[in-house]
Simulated scan of single mutants.
Amino acid sequence: MKIGLDIMGGDYAPKANVLGAIAAHPLLSPKEHLVLIGDTQQIKPLLSENGFNPDHFEYIHTEEVIGMGEHPTKAIVQKPNSSISIGFNLLKEGKLDSFASAGNSGAMLVGAVFSVKTIPGIIRPCLSTFLPKLSGGVGLMVDVGANADCKPDILLQFGILGSLYAENVMGINTPKVALMNIGEEDEKGNMLSLATFPLMKDTQLFNFVGNVEGRDLFNDKADVIVCDGFTGNVMLKLAESFYVLTLKRGLKDEFFDRFNYENYGGSPVLGVNAPVVIGHGISSPLAVKNMIMQSRDMITTGLVGKIQAAFK
């Protein structure tokens, strides 16, 4: 198994990514190898400073980087030697089993679709994020930013993708899938949710439990919450602010501590032909370590193959 990691992506690259790789190494089996993609002249001194044997990793050298503010499609096309472009080429060629980066998220989405392609039958891939539950568990929300505008059949597919991830990677048996709405009643919502609800109600592809509201994000009414990417991204950014606000107010609370993005690593891209994880731009070493472990779990569970089988 070869797990690809973009060392140059993110606000604190390359140091945070290198330290995250070092932290992940003891948790990987001898057959699970990290491939670091980036400037080896910056990577190896950081390994040396931390007393880490560089022979534990494999390296693909490049000095070109896609900046956080660059146009995603233009950057992928115009910078074929960037760490993100190289990572996706290796993934496409089967020389990597997964690829993760805390770099330009738009470039990561474009790169995934251009290289390993969308799984046949899937209209649009989606981004997912994790929701801490008051009961102690964790839920999943899809989509959180890849698709601002959606149609009912796209949301139906998001339900399938989220259910498969929750069951296979998160270990939730028969995940409860719900549609985010402005009310629990069947007839509530805008045109999109009103058209989506009957599709989900009639499907046998996942365990649909009806509509949920914003106040249900962190309870146990659903394991997977489906929404368009515009709504999901607004809720994600709001949820992320809870942790920051508790720190600013000097509050210590175990539940709100679980809103720290570092605990989850990154956002899996669901619906493409290989495991891809997009990390937060401000990813710390802990976040990078968890992003690597998340990539490993997506490989070992055979998630992509199970999604491909579901959409045949």
Rank of each mutant, 00 (worst) to 15 (best):
L140V: 10
A112V: 09
F311Q: 13
G159H: 06
G67C: 03
T73N: 09
A148Y: 05
C126S: 13
S193M: 12
A146N: 02
V272G: 07
V138W: 04
N17Q: 06
I84K: 12
M235D: 12
E184G: 07
Q78N: 14
A102N: 05
E240Q: 11
G271S: 12
P285G: 02
L270F: 05
K74I: 06
G87E: 09
L131T: 11
L236W: 03
R124H: 11
G106W: 02
N147D: 09
P132T: 01
M108P: 15
V138M: 06
I43P: 14
N273C: 15
G232C: 09
Q157I: 00
E240T: 04
V224N: 07
M141W: 00
G279A: 11
K31T: 15
N104A: 10
R258F: 08
P72Y: 02
S163E: 12
G159P: 10
A23E: 15
K237A: 02
G136P: 13
G266F: 05
S105P: 15
G266W: 02
G210N: 05
N290P: 13
I182G: 00
G103I: 13
F130M: 10
G162W: 00
V244C: 04
L5E: 11
T174K: 15
N81L: 11
R249F: 14
L164D: 00
T203H: 07
G121P: 10
M170I: 06
T73Y: 14
F311K: 07
C150Y: 06
P285R: 01
V226C: 09
L192T: 03
G229H: 12
A146V: 07
T203N: 08
I119R: 00
K221F: 08
V272F: 06
E185C: 01
V244P: 01
A222S: 14
I60A: 08
I292L: 14
V244I: 14
Y165S: 01
V288C: 12
S105R: 14
N290I: 10
G159D: 05
